[in-house]
Amino acid sequence: MLQDKTIGNRIFDITNYTLLILIGLICVLPFVYVLAVSFTSPAEVAKGGLILWPKEWSLASYRYIFSTDTLFRSMLVSIYITVVGTFINLLFTSLMAYPLAKATLRGRQFILLAVLFTMLFGGGMIPTYFVVKAMGLTNSLWSLMIPNAISAFNLIVLKNFFQQIPDGLEDSARIDGCTDVGVLFRIVLPLSMPAMATFGLFYAVGHWNQFFSAILYINDSRLYPIQVLLRQIVILAQGSIGDTSIDNVEIQPLTIRMAVIVFATVPILLVYPFLQKHFAKGVMLGSVKG
């Protein structure tokens, strides 16, 4: 009986591990391709086909993109809005999600419904622009952080996470003289590190990928984040959006486009591995509380 179970377990584990390795490989493939092309010489790429390892190494693409400070500057802009923006997001979202997680709060349902409503209906680009302008945010980087300070989706899901924290812990803190604000910052947030890491990641990636609002709200091209330039170099080259006047523009070779993708993606890719330890931490705390 016992023997049987371990054999079953082993088969399960082996299948599971194999599948996961396979999925991991398939998922990493596109990025390996991008990476490989960016390091390959243009002549080699011109021959076509799937390149997963550079046959002829070349740093020409990187030399090209590093020969100007435009990309660096927009990278700094992106890092700035991502770090500061995410901080604002987490602060505002958790401040709002915590009270909404309290089933006894009066008016809670109404507020949640009102928040949900904004997920479905929006005023559109032009009225939103007028609001952003009236708040004096246009042409500054705040226009990329304040108008999206809280995502309704993240708020609702975070509220759901908060609800699963047992009340006992909070009550004991309250007896010790903490206010609700104190409970949130001293008890609930430290217990919710996995959730905070998750939503921090969601927000950070959201900020990192912003390009449309940057073009709309910012006139000074020196303040454009990296995604604007990335799309400028990558998407346009594909000629997918019909426009006759770009019929004949010189487009950057694939190698340079891929190098720009690598340059613009690697920083945000590094965020997740860094956050992973917080996921583990949540597990440990979780076991203590039980």
Binding site: I126, Y129, F130, F212, I215, L216, N219, D220, S221, R231
Partner: peptide, 19 residues
């Protein structure tokens, strides 16, 4: 010179006209 990326030029133009 306000350099507006091609991909959002028309939208930006509409905004500027509206505003």
């Amino acid at each position: 010179i306000e350099w507006i990326p091609m991909s959002a030029y028309d939208d930006k133009q509409r905004l500027m006209i509206a505003a």
